[in-house]
Every structure is written in structure tokens, then in C-alpha cells.
Amino acid sequence: MSARLAYVLIGLVSALMLASLLIGPANVPPVQSLRALFLADDPLMALVMRELRLPRSLLAALIGAGLGLSGAVMQGYLRNPLAEPGLLGVSGAAALGAVITLQTGLASTFALALPMAALLGAGLAVGLLALLAGPRGGSLTLILAGIGVSAFAGAGVTLVLNLSPDPFAANEALFWLMGSLTDRSWSHVALAAPFILGGMALLATQARALDALTLGEDAAASLGIDLVRLRLVVMLGLASVVGAATAVAGAIGFVGLVVPHLLRRAVRARPAALLVASALGGAAMVLAADIAVRLIMPERDLKLGVLMAIIGAPFFLHLIFRHRLTQV
């Protein structure tokens, strides 16, 4: 990644992080807000800044970075610009775990019951993937296994909603599925951060392997890349990042698909450089979207996942259209 692009992206993330800290329903002037972050002379505002806005902003940046990186890894691994982190079915399984806790009332027994159940779902999905795809085999087997897990988890979610005796619980689950960062606390950060950061560190070790895969699997293997290990690391790292992100924020799509697309030209398509750029770009995108849901209809609690899809889908269509033009 060129130094200029790095500066631009880091500047963008910093600016959005700051904006995210300063914008909220409390409507306090910026200087006072920032002051409350460090000094406790206004106890109420200090509470708002430290316990509400700061964890929310951090989560947005963390989740965005994780999903952006995961998308770049997935596209590099499959050598396909249409791949995205959700393909492995981990987010679907995490959602199933969450919906079950909402439906059974387990979610209200203690604060982290829902995200923990979601993580458990993600963990089970990885186990199932490993069983289905086996220790050897190419990327295609892994994706087919992922589609299977994804379909099963999706069916599970609809089944739970279908059999729900309580329309309020079903409604709550439906809203949760839309994805949001509203009212997330430090305990959410503490739960998700180790998985997201650990997963990202794991994925980053495979940068060289993804570069080599540009030449195809045989040539990469002949250059000394261990493809079996690559697959294992991709599977575990992705599950860790996506599982934790889904657990605390619900399903947030399109980041992993769109961000690597947006930045590919800027890094001249080098897969390893795209990893860092996509992590920064993802953080910027989720921060921006989370600011947008607070500015557009703040009273209606517009969901992050919905906004992302509304912006993402037309953008995706535009990409396909442009792709078609360059292909012909």
C-alpha cells in the first residue's frame, strides 16, 4: 500500500472516529464533549461519552476493520471479487445462536447471554465446516461446506421465528437480525475485541500466501506456500472475526464485499496490500454508516445493517455493471 493511501485512510478513520464521538442525541457542543471524555467535572456527560459513545465508536471501528479485512482475505483466497465473509456460514450460525436466546428468554437472564450464544453458534459452525471440508481438499470444498452450513443456519433462524409463540420475542429477534450498534457497552467491546483482533492477526499472517495465490494454487504451492495451513487459518480467522462481529452487532453485510472492491484499484490489486487497506476502509465505512443512522431519523432507530444494505446494494449493482463493461 502506498504511503499516500495509508495517510488518506488513517486520516479518514480518525476523522470519522472523532465525528462518531461528537454526534449523538445529547447534543452537547464538541469541546464540552471531548472535555467530558477526560475530565469528570460534568458527571452526566462523562457517563455519556465514556460509557455510551466511546465503546460504540470503538466497536464500529473494530467490526468494520474486521469485516473489511475478512472480505479481502476471502476474495484473495478464492481469487473471486464476488466472495464475501458471509459465504462460510459463520455469521448465519452466530445469528441462529442469538435468535435462540432471544426466543427462549435466555437473553434477558444476563447481559452477555446473547453474544455468548452467538459465539457458540459460530464455533459450532467452524467445527461443522472442518468436518465437512476435511483436512485436505481445495477452496471449493470449503465454500460448498460453507453454503451448506449457511443454508442450515438460515433455515434454523426461520424455524425459530416460525414456531415463536410470542410475537414480541419474534419481533425483537427480527430487529436484532438487522444489525445495530445502539446501546453497546464496554462489556460488548471486552467480549468481541479479543476474537476480532486475534482473528485479524491470524489472517494477516497469510498475506504472502494470498499474494502467491495470484498465480494459482499449483504455482503458489511450488513457491513454498502451505495450502492446507492457509485454508485452516482462513477458516479459523474468519470465523473468529465474523462470529464475534455478528455476536455483538448482528448481521452487517456488504462491508466485506464492497470495501475490497472500492480499494482494489488504489493498491493496484495486490492481495497483501489490500488486506491493510480494506481493514482501514472497513472501519471508515462502518463508522460512517453508524453516524448516518444517528443523523437520519434518530427517533426511529434506523438499523445499521439496513442502511448498509440500502447503500450497498445499488453500489454492488453499479460494480457489476462496470465489470460487465470492462469484460466485453
Binding site: 481469487r79 495465490l213 495470484t214 498465480l215 494459482g216 499449483d218 504455482a219 482494489r264 493496484r268 490489486a269 495486490r270 492481495p271
Partner: peptide
């Protein structure tokens, strides 16, 4: 097989 996956 002559594979070049990305426009690097």
C-alpha cells in the same frame, strides 16, 4: 494452466 487472478 496460465493463471493470473488479479490485475497486478
Amino acid at each position: 494452466g496460465r493463471v493470473i487472478a488479479w490485475p497486478v
